[in-house]
Design a binder for these strands. Structure first.
Lengths: 217, 217
DNA sequence: TTGACAAAAATTGTTAACAATAATGTATTG
DNA sequence: CAATACATTATTGTTAACAATTTTTGTCAA
């Protein structure tokens, strides 16, 4: 799916905000007709990942400070109750799902696969929603996480462009021990860390060269 | 906007689940080309309002019990912290927005404008999100409320097809008095009432006659 | 009457040409 | 040389025709 590819590229911060996504180039890059591309862009724009300007084309969304605040507020609203619920009544499958994912994260980190680490870090939070077994929330979390990627890419200080090490494991640990309050606390702390890694004054320049960026996913 | 019109029709329960939305008929009803219609249907399907089946057309989404649970769970996850936050620090504009809306609801009720009451009841919850000043959450709430409309239309017992009288006012009252806990409690109670008005075994037949349903909005 | 099969109709998916708009480059003028 | 007006180019938006698929209809035989 073409939407997934762009999603992934954004999550891995290979597609910088404000990058222009021209139809012709995307058609070429993905080897599909204009219809498919336009459909994908429409969907992406409906999720705030892409900015669709009338008669001017599609651009990777470039969230401002206010939008960044909204996204983080939404996450702080949704995720704490989510992990609380998860920790209150976790099932085997969910726990397995999460620990497997953390194993993936660790592996990628050890191999110094930077962009893989970035993407997996984001996906962990989506997996939290999936573990809670709620498709509606899963979809919302995915959108929020992807938009967070954009925000971190824009405002993040160069060092920590993803979730700090070990914090995911700490959250899972609290869930495994059926300790809702601790799980919630650790999650909030985790989100705070991500947010504190931002510098709301800094802005970074967009890059280009779509074909090479999107082609290799 | 054509999406808004369909949204509205669903919210007012004039478009029953499983109703087929054929492109030709929609083109006729709205007086637009097929492109616009297809774009609208795609957006609606991405929000779970419409079910897009390959080569078979678009149908008003017909949520099953599991989906209904997910929607209510999502609302119970998001709305309580939302009103808590709102009650903790309400601003004048928000309070005005909400009380004005409740006035609208009352007026419609007094005039026995049933479908108007149904729609306004749903919109109140969207206004709660707007009052909190968060666009991301507002969009999510709108989707959730619309899907709830579908669910109530499907599983609701004939009597209470919308939010019980006065409960919105009670929530606003708690917010006005800056009482987060009470506001949260009343909201949870309110959502419970809606949910208790459902009968998960009953299903209702779809209707038809698109032009007349959509035309008058 | 019912069932299976085939033809026809209707509906959706795709493509390609066309129109409209914005971006770019060029020349002319002060 | 700078700036503006104009022409050219490129890109997006729309329309309409075509292809593919599904649904319906009609026919015939059991």
């Amino acid at each position: 799916m073409i939407v997934e590819r762009i999603y992934k590229a954004v999550m891995e911060q290979r597609l910088a905000p404000n990058t222009k996504l021209s139809e012709a180039r995307l058609c070429e890059a993905f080897g599909v007709g204009r219809m498919r591309v336009r459909r994908a862009l429409l969907l992406l724009s409906s999720q705030g990942i892409v900015n669709l300007q009338s008669n001017r084309g599609a651009y990777v969304s470039c969230p401002d400070e206010s939008e960044a605040n909204d996204v983080f507020e939404a996450r702080l609203l949704i995720e704490p109750p989510l992990v609380r619920k998860l920790a209150a009544a976790p099932n085997e499958t969910s726990l397995r799902l999460l620990s497997d994912h953390i194993a993936l994260e660790d592996a990628a980190r050890n191999k110094n696969q930077r962009i893989e680490v970035i993407r997996l870090s984001g996906e962990f939070h989506v997996k939290l929603a999936q573990a809670a077994g709620n498709k509606v929330i899963s979809r919302m979390m995915r959108e929020l996480v992807t938009r967070t990627s954009l925000i971190v890419g824009l405002f993040g200080r160069s060092s920590n462009s993803s979730c700090p090490d070990g914090e995911h494991a700490a959250i899972l640990d609290a869930i495994q021990q059926r300790d809702p309050k601790r799980a919630e606390k650790r999650l909030i702390l985790h989100l705070d860390h991500i947010r504190n890694g931002l510098d709301m004054d800094a802005r970074k320049p967009p890059l280009d060269d779509l074909a090479s960026i999107l082609g290799a996913s």
